[in-house]
Design a protein around this nucleic acid. Structure first.
Lengths: 182, 182
DNA sequence: TCTCAATGAGACACTGATGTCTCATTTGAG
DNA sequence: CTCAAATGAGACATCAGTGTCTCATTGAGA
């Protein structure tokens, strides 16, 4: 009888990723509940988006923890991170387009924490000599987000194969498009 | 006295890139005109977005033409393309988040044409041996869009330096993050 | 200077989404 | 089985955004 909030959030994310302008009624229907119940769980659309934001942050931080981004070679850490981040990519794609979240006076500090971890990863790779130094860690972090979102979208629209998600993002981010001999 | 439609579109794009939920009233104020005039120029918000889409397509195609994407080494063509695309990146970022444009029954064929040109560029690079073949041209195209949007956003929020736009996108897309000896 | 088209300002009704409420029904625990 | 809590369905008022209209004002060209 009790509604599973997380299941509702996942259904909402799945719908909002494809149609960010979906109505609360559509979200409720997609989650298999009534609009009344949806409003009982989340007081208003804003609260729903905030909850999705919290879920996204939690999933990303959990992914970073599972990937152990501070251990081993930085390149391998990036590969693990991307692989662990794949399930959250759809949610990330929605939040990425919800720039309403960032235009306010203050953004959720969870993003700050997450950014710090990823930036630290790229900086570590630079200091060890694995990554080039002419691309700033901040830009590499932003690029990682962008590639994750692009890949999620491209897969969602059937332009690229779902199985290639991880390798597509990782290979392009680390190796680039230019062919290397050897 | 006569309103410059293109100037209005640019002001609208500049605002909508930062706040995609901006009101028609806000858009009009940002463009320095009244809401009545805005509605005289663009019959409704939908028409405004469509006009922005047309402008974006036109700018991208003009950039592709200026960059002569079919001439010379593919890597250099990509560099030229990114450089020419920079002024349109902001508009592209807005359109990218306006997934409402793609969820309809039919998307503007301008995107199809543009995609075809960029895909052809990457495919040419692969056939010549410049680009690696384990990343599909379609994915490289999507990644290019994603990096352009990421870079535009990061600059808009002051996270990276505006001057680094072209090199950031180009270097990461072509070379990747991993450092190469010589 | 005169004229007329275009603009700005404001009022107006309309639409769609939203949030809240009620009540019948269902579900799960005791 | 019984009952309390939660849900679903629907009605309702509210509100913000939108599109349209009118009218006074502006400005460029004849």
């Amino acid at each position: 009888m009790a509604v599973d909030r997380e299941q509702v959030l996942r259904a909402a994310a799945s719908l909002l990723m494809r149609k960010s302008s979906a109505t609360m009624d559509e979200v409720a229907r997609a989650a298999g509940i009534s609009r009344a119940t949806l409003n009982r769980q989340f007081a208003g659309r804003d609260a729903l988006v905030r909850a999705l934001e919290e879920l996204g942050i939690a999933e990303c931080e959990a992914a970073a923890a599972r990937a152990a981004v501070d251990d081993g070679p930085a390149a391998d850490a990036v590969r693990r991170l991307v692989r662990e981040l794949e399930p959250a990519a759809g949610l990330l794609a929605f939040l990425y387009s919800e720039n309403q979240l960032f235009e306010g006076d203050e953004q959720n500090e969870g993003w700050t924490r997450l950014d710090a971890r990823v930036v630290a990863l790229f900086r570590r790779g630079q200091e060890v000599g694995e990554f080039r130094i002419d691309l700033s860690p901040v830009w590499l972090t932003e690029a990682l987000y962008g590639l994750l979102v692009s890949a999620a979208w491209a897969i969602c629209e059937g332009r690229v194969a779902p199985n290639d998600f991880s390798s597509n993002v990782t290979e392009l981010l680390l190796g680039g498009a230019v062919r290397r001999e050897k």
